[in-house]
């Protein structure tokens, strides 16, 4: 048996953990506090550690000065589309790779997983050149079509599908079920947790994406939220309280949502160890 250490030692560990948790989240605290300050209080010394303006004035102004709403609608549309498409493409690919034996399956698997070794920073230039050739620059197509399928989701689902016992499938086969009916009626109902996890990941990756919209989109009304937000900050005079209000609208919903789904999330990471 492991003995509990002395009371004071335990308190010390809790203090260390709490202090770290606070320190790590201090930027978010400060972001929210600043977003509720009038412009004159932003630079006050010593800084005020509490909100001084209990209204959404900065939020309203942020949405008025920058097309935040447009960015958000764009991002929601793109993220939703990518998620829906990946749900179809990734499920099919994962199913083919995990439940059907066919010649060349190991090559297909290697090709798909191999894309994880080719980072976005490397492909951004040639992908831009190719998408430009297609005439998709500054369109939703550029933001959606290249991401219709992704190795990470395929890998995640494949790992899950492989844990489903074959006997279930065999029984259905004997009853004369085709491959895709088995997928629809047996595999998918059993895979809801994995599908849910994948959708969360895809949506978050899409919501957080920055590099590709930065290079593929130059027209403001087509821009996504992350690039739009950071453009706002590089203007010559930064209205910090408004900028923090805008940042809060981008960051806080994700954090709140994360609190509800954190279990699936963190388990997904240790399962794969492939992607953040």
């Amino acid at each position: 048996m492991i003995r509990k250490p002395h009371f004071s030692a335990r308190i010390l560990v809790y203090i260390a953990l709490t202090a770290t948790a606070i320190a790590i989240n201090l930027p978010f605290f400060w972001m929210i506090v600043t977003s509720f300050k009038p412009e004159r209080d932003v630079f006050s010394i010593p800084p005020k550690f509490y909100p001084t303006l209990f209204s959404f004035k900065n939020y309203i102004e942020a949405f008025e000065t920058v097309p935040m709403l447009r960015y958000m609608v764009n991002t929601l549309f793109v993220s939703g589309s990518v998620m829906a498409l990946q749900l179809v493409f990734n499920v099919l690919a994962a199913y083919g790779l995990s439940r059907i034996r066919f010649r060349g399956s190991s090559i297909v698997f290697a090709l798909i997983i191999g894309t994880l070794m080719i980072p976005e920073e490397v492909t951004m230039v040639p992908l831009y050149l190719i998408v430009r050739q297609f005439g998709w620059i500054n369109s939703y197509r550029a933001l959606i079509i290249p991401f219709m399928a992704h190795a990470f989701g395929i890998f995640l689902l494949r790992q899950f599908f492989m844990t489903i016992p074959r006997e279930l499938e065999d029984a259905a086969m004997i009853d004369g079920c085709g491959r895709f009916r088995i997928l629809w009626e047996i595999i998918l109902p059993l895979s809801k947790p994995a599908l849910w996890t994948m959708c969360l990941y895809v949506f978050l990756m899409s919501w957080n994406s920055y590099i590709w919209p930065l290079v593929a989109i130059s027209r403001d009304e087509m821009q996504l939220i992350q690039v739009g937000l950071s453009r706002f900050s590089t203007s010559w005079m930064t209205p910090w309280s408004q900028l923090m209000a805008a940042s809060s609208t981008v960051i806080v919903p994700v954090i709140v949502f994360f609190f509800f789904v954190q279990k699936q999330f963190i388990e997904g990471i240790t399962l794969s160890g492939l992607k953040e």
């Binding site: 770290t20 948790a21 790590i24 989240n25 930027p27 978010f28 400060w30 972001m31 978050l204 919501w207 957080n208 920055y210 992350q226 690039v227 937000l229 950071s230 706002f232 900050s233 900028l243 923090m244 940042s247 981008v250 960051i251 994700v254 954090i255 994360f258 954190q262 999330f265 963190i266 953040e276």
Partner: peptide, 15 residues
């Protein structure tokens, strides 16, 4: 401890 990980780097960098 995980909150910074799920936050977008771009938005976090603005903050």
């Amino acid at each position: 401890f995980y909150i910074p990980v799920i936050t977008a780097m771009a938005a976090a960098a603005v903050v």
